Amino acid sequence: MDRPRLLNRRSVLGLGTAAAAVLVTPGCSRGRSTEPAPAGPAKLVTGNKGGVYATYGAGLAKLVTEVTGVEMTAQNTEGSVANLKMLDAGTADIGFSLSDSALDAYNGLEAFSSGQLRFTALARTYDNYVHIVVPASSKISSLKQLSGMTVNVGPKLSGTKVVAERILATAGIKGVNMVNLDLDGAVEALKLKAENKGSKAGIDALIWSGGLPTKPIKDLQSTIGFRLVPIGEVAKEIALMRFGGYVLSSIPPSVYSLASAVETLAVPNYLLAREGLSDSWAWWTLNTMFRRQADLIKVHPEAGSLDARSAIATMPIPLHRAAERWYRNNHI
């Protein structure tokens, strides 16, 4: 493997004022004034087009590239399960995952019962919220009414599918026709059903796990209109059964112009790294997330949820050693 190259004065000048400030401002890495730049490019895997993973990830990759002068590319995927498998296989360097999927993969449970996957953590980033979306004209108002309906549960390798199937199973709902569209496809299928009442085409509801707001869902209010189905009792049951992977929460009405808050599950998100990822890539990715947080918030407001005090809470998934050093040197 090539030896990491140091960012020299010429490199710093080429990065621009904002990026250079990350390098030279006292306290950026207390106890270590410089960090080697990565030796080669890196791949960050995200999620469905239009989702927060994809939006946040593209913005992060662009900023890390700007700061280091070494290319980081963002690649859309089906979501958490796909990302975890790619990290374990070494075909991706960094990726987002829902905590429940990550914990299952690390412990070799359920969808990952064929074997434990291995990766490290950079940070707990923000929380996803489970959305169960139905058209405003729909008669569906509870989970039980999904029985016999066509419901999108997310792509086959998504974290949404994991949590969606867990919710339906916990609620004891049978007879659901589950389909596996990506986010954009699910939104269009929901529109199709709402605009062609009585038609067998389209879907009756979509389940999505994402940050707030998820733009393709938010945009539905200006077309067919939508409501969110509350899952309070089932959410409590799942949160109690799986401590650490889920948090009982609610979606505020202001996020989607709803009539009231909707009880649901929140699922922490992790930014993970493949085993063996260079210290340079791990350190610069994490440093950029914190030092350029204001720029990332402009990309998506969920970037503002990153907090160093909670970012280290990824156990039992171990922090990458460079991430440990970053938090330690910044007195976290």
Rank of each mutant, 00 (worst) to 15 (best):
E66Y: 01
V262C: 05
I140E: 05
K43S: 08
S280F: 00
K298R: 14
M1T: 14
A303V: 01
S11K: 07
T73Y: 03
A266D: 02
A82G: 15
M72W: 08
E324H: 00
Y246N: 05
L63M: 06
A37D: 05
D204T: 07
A74I: 09
A19Y: 02
L13W: 09
I332V: 15
I217V: 15
P155T: 11
I238N: 02
V179M: 12
V70H: 09
R227M: 02
V24R: 02
N48I: 00
A322M: 02
P38A: 07
A74R: 02
E275P: 01
K174F: 03
D100P: 11
I231T: 14
G185N: 06
P316W: 05
L271F: 05
K161F: 09
V70F: 13
D204K: 01
K43V: 15
A105M: 12
F119C: 13
W281C: 12
S141T: 15
E302G: 00
V162S: 11
Y106C: 02
A19E: 14
V24T: 13
I231D: 00
G115K: 07
I217T: 03
G95D: 06
E233Y: 03
N287F: 03
M72T: 03
E237P: 00
L6D: 14
K62Q: 15
P213L: 04
N128G: 10
E165Y: 01
I231G: 01
E233F: 01
P230R: 10
I203D: 04
A105C: 09
D2Y: 11
W283G: 00
S114M: 13
N152H: 06
G40K: 02
S99G: 08
V134G: 08
A194T: 09
S29N: 12
L240H: 11
V179D: 10
V64L: 11
V133G: 13
L248W: 01
L183A: 06
K197Q: 15
W208H: 14
A205W: 05
A313R: 14
A261Y: 07
N329M: 10
D182W: 02
Y126A: 07
D219F: 03
T25D: 06
A111T: 11
R292Q: 15
R32T: 12
L192P: 01
R274K: 15
I332E: 10
G232N: 07
Q116R: 15
P4T: 12
Y56T: 00
S114P: 04
Y56E: 01
D93Q: 12
